[in-house]
Simulated scan of single mutants.
Amino acid sequence: MPTSDGSTKGAGAVALGLVPGLAVQELGWGDDVDDALREQVMDAIDADLLYEATEAVDVVLLWWRDSDGDVADGLVDALTDLSPTGYIWLLTPKVGRTDYVDPTDLAEGALTAGLSVANPASVSANWQAQKLVRPRAGRR
């Protein structure tokens, strides 16, 4: 949504549907992440991102690059602190960017981790997001 100056400040976090009060854990942070998107997320949830959770979290933001290895392993690790009704936003470099992750690998990784691929979101110039959820039968 454009601001008064025509920019789309906060558009990435808006696309993720994050609201105040959500406990959001961040995994896979690196020097290449989109710091503006991270700030937007913290503004949207009105809190800091969690790195080590002491209780179940509502959302996991997982930054993943092709060089990080098997995406299924990363997704399984991301499930550790996720509440039964929570979901994962898997953030990967966009097509043509360094460490781009092939969509087939994402789909296979999600299936292996027991997750369903939900809606994608365009969140920044260099990163795309894919929402991953537990299948309905597995949620309580």
Rank of each mutant, 00 (worst) to 15 (best):
M1R: 09
M1Q: 08
P2E: 13
S7D: 12
S7H: 14
S7A: 08
S7F: 07
T8P: 00
A11N: 06
A13Q: 04
A15S: 10
L16R: 00
L16Y: 00
L16E: 01
G17R: 05
G17W: 02
G17N: 09
G17E: 04
L18M: 11
L18E: 04
P20Q: 07
P20K: 02
G21W: 04
L22D: 10
L22H: 13
A23E: 14
V24W: 00
Q25G: 06
G28K: 06
W29N: 04
D31K: 05
D32T: 15
V33R: 10
V33W: 02
D34A: 06
D34R: 04
D35W: 12
A36F: 10
L37H: 06
R38W: 11
E39T: 13
M42W: 01
M42Y: 01
D43T: 15
D43S: 13
I45D: 11
I45M: 07
I45W: 01
I45L: 11
D46F: 02
D46R: 12
A47W: 04
L49E: 13
L49K: 03
A53D: 06
A53C: 02
T54R: 12
T54H: 09
T54E: 14
A56N: 09
A56M: 10
V57Q: 10
D58C: 08
V59Y: 03
V59H: 05
V60M: 04
L61W: 03
L62A: 09
W63A: 09
W63C: 13
W64E: 14
R65I: 03
D66F: 03
D66T: 05
S67T: 14
S67E: 12
D68I: 00
D70T: 05
V71N: 04
V71C: 12
V71Y: 05
A72L: 09
A72G: 13
D73G: 08
G74H: 02
V76R: 15
L79D: 08
L79H: 06
T80S: 15
T80N: 09
D81S: 14
L82M: 05
S83I: 01
P84Y: 12
T85S: 09
G86A: 05
G86F: 03
Y87V: 02
Y87T: 08
I88Q: 02
W89C: 10
L91G: 11
L91R: 08
P93C: 05
P93Y: 01
K94E: 15
V95M: 04
V95D: 11
G96N: 01
G96W: 00
T98C: 03
D99G: 02
D99M: 04
Y100T: 13
Y100F: 15
Y100G: 01
V101M: 03
D102Y: 00
T104G: 11
D105E: 15
L106G: 07
L106H: 09
L106R: 14
A107G: 10
E108C: 06
G109C: 01
A110K: 02
A110L: 06
L111D: 12
T112F: 03
T112A: 15
T112N: 08
S116Y: 03
V117H: 07
A118H: 12
A118L: 08
N119E: 14
S122N: 14
S122W: 13
V123W: 01
S124L: 07
S124N: 11
A125S: 08
N126Y: 00
N126A: 07
Q128M: 11
Q128N: 06
Q128C: 01
A129I: 04
Q130E: 09
K131Y: 02
K131R: 15
P135E: 03
P135V: 07
P135W: 08
R139Y: 06
R139T: 14
R140L: 13
R140M: 08
